[in-house]
Write a protein that binds this DNA or RNA. Structure first.
Lengths: 123, 123
DNA sequence: AATCGTTATTTCTTTAAAAATATAACGATA
DNA sequence: TATCGTTATATTTTTAAAGAAATAACGATT
């Protein structure tokens, strides 16, 4: 009888099945953990720059993520305003909030999958 | 009523849920797509160097992957022989083949998960 | 002992990604 | 119209990862 995985792996090191999820189209990722957190923080702060700063992300990268995300939605999920009383800012649309919620649920299902597979290592 | 994801995403670009899976312990990955393919090729060729070459992977990286993998198993899954009639070579143990098989099945389950989630985007 | 191609390892170089920097445009407000 | 902090964008610099190259050790075979 062939050995089982748990007899091959060094179980004392507590190996786990882990992974990453994202939305892509044409091999290009446009919605993963990064953009999600960014959206959340833009919603809070009203500013791409400030949100990026909180995440220790460069403004440039943040802007690219948002721009890329907007390119994959029927209407922009982040609406920037340049100039204005405080120099400008950005608001996230209700659709963005919907995407965030979707991703939370997706992540929950993925987490369940990973935990199931991790448990499965032991049998 | 809140919009659904399919109404927010630009569905004409055919977005899909995709992801990556691996085994890790202590935040360090030791078994993902790379090592799996490498093991398969070492099994075929009997040589780390040749296997790496086939994958356009540097020998150094291949060796690191294998070394790292061996460090997470109860006994080495790749046994190198330095020197010998053809200069040496490496053989993969039955346990390695078992790991490969495990990963194939894991990947199958993950694929099903991803496809289900991708379909789910449309509803 | 000479040969072979591999393993094992270090060092150097290249490349790519990320980050930092700089600057123009913007428009509500005072 | 002067100010503000932001968006938008290009350019430069830094950093990290990957790759290339070089070298010693190895041992069965001849």
């Amino acid at each position: 009888m062939a050995k089982k995985v748990k007899d091959i792996l060094e179980m004392s090191k507590h190996p786990v099945v882990n992974g990453s999820l994202w939305l892509e189209s044409g091999d290009k990722r446009f919605f993963g953990p990064g953009p999600v957190e960014l959206l959340e923080r833009i919603a809070e702060t009203g500013s791409i720059r400030q949100a990026a700063k909180e995440m220790q992300m460069s403004y440039k990268k943040a802007w690219e993520l948002i721009n890329n995300l907007n390119a994959h939605t029927t209407s922009p999920v982040v609406i920037p305003q340049t100039g204005g009383e405080k120099g400008g800012g950005s608001i996230v649309t209700p659709e963005a909030l919907e995407l965030i919620q979707y991703h939370r649920e997706l992540r929950k299902r993925f987490k369940a999958f990973l935990e199931k597979e991790t448990k499965n290592l032991s049998y």
